[in-house]
Design a protein around this nucleic acid. Structure first.
Length: 270
DNA sequence: CGCTGACCCTGACGGC
DNA sequence: TGCCGTCAGGGTCAGC
């Protein structure tokens, strides 16, 4: 679920229900996430007003006067708005209850996500060394070109490195490389400026389109159990290893790069 | 410093 | 039916 478009969709979905709301109560049923949920988080967040809901990389930031709640969804996490009377299910680890009976519920079977607290003005180590947002003007082909010189790792691993650019997950790394015609296993340092220009444009394109798609699931955040898969049918390579390339018909190859499955077309990508 | 692989955890799925 | 290995959209960290 949570690639950047899902996180941004989550942000947009929950923001109107959280903004200017008073946190009445916080319930932590399971504190063993990627890092333990801090003991003080409940006390610090309770009674606070949510002044903004922001996103940096794949982190969601709930701003209050006392500090910020920083949430990451990991691999399997989700935040949903539910009625406060709805009983929690398996893996529903945290509830944030607002005045008015709305509950923001965190669900995460694998517990790779996190709930952390940032004091006001705190420069959290997890946010400190992040690269630019992929949809900002700070991210372009020039940046990729400059930062890749001399580097030998696969270009796919390179663009998935959050210190280079944030928010490019496995699905969209595969898709953007296909659209740009670049083989994912090429050494990052041996790709031209012009090709990086093309790649950066396609990263932006693919993420922008996916966020637009995510918008169609916004309603699922209120009450439903929005299960994605809505964009699956328009994926060109991800999850399609062994199937024909939609452009040229060649059988798509699949191999692992940096422990992640990578799919590409030997004819269309070089 | 750059890179690779182990690891965190549960669940789904395919083969036997 | 069950058991076992493999894989999954995240990221950090140790070690070479």
């Amino acid at each position: 679920m949570p690639e950047l478009p899902e996180v941004e969709t989550t942000r947009r979905g929950v923001e109107p229900h959280c903004l200017n709301q008073v946190v009445r109560r916080v319930i932590v049923r399971e504190a063993r996430l990627r890092w333990p949920v801090p003991d003080q988080l409940v006390a610090l967040l309770s009674g606070q007003v949510i002044e903004a809901v922001q996103r940096r990389a794949k982190y969601l930031l709930f701003r209050t006067a006392a500090g910020s709640l920083m949430v990451h969804l990991g691999m399997s996490g989700s935040l949903r708005l539910v009625d406060a009377t709805k009983p929690p299910g398996r893996h529903d680890h945290i509830d944030i209850l607002f005045d008015g009976g709305v509950c923001l519920r965190y669900h995460d079977p694998r517990r790779f996500g996190c709930f952390l607290w940032l004091a006001p003005g705190d420069d959290h180590p997890l946010l400190r060394n992040l690269g630019p947002e992929p949809l900002s003007s700070d991210f372009d082909g020039q940046l990729l070109y400059r930062r890749s010189r001399g580097r030998k790792l696969a270009v796919k691993s390179f663009i998935m490195d959050g210190k280079v650019v944030v928010g490019v997950g496995n699905i969209y790394a595969n898709e953007a490389l296909f659209l740009a015609g670049i083989r994912p296993d090429r050494a990052a340092g041996r790709i031209s400026s012009a090709r990086y220009q093309h790649l950066a444009e396609n990263v932006k394109l693919v993420l922008t389109n996916a966020i637009a798609q995510g918008g169609t699931t916004l309603r699922d955040f209120v009450g439903g159990d929005g299960k994605p898969g809505y964009f699956a049918q328009q994926l060109l390579v991800y999850g399609r290893g062994g199937q024909p390339c939609k452009t040229c018909g060649s059988v798509l190859q699949e191999r692992r790069l940096g422990q992640r499955s990578s799919v590409y077309c030997v004819t269309c990508q070089h």
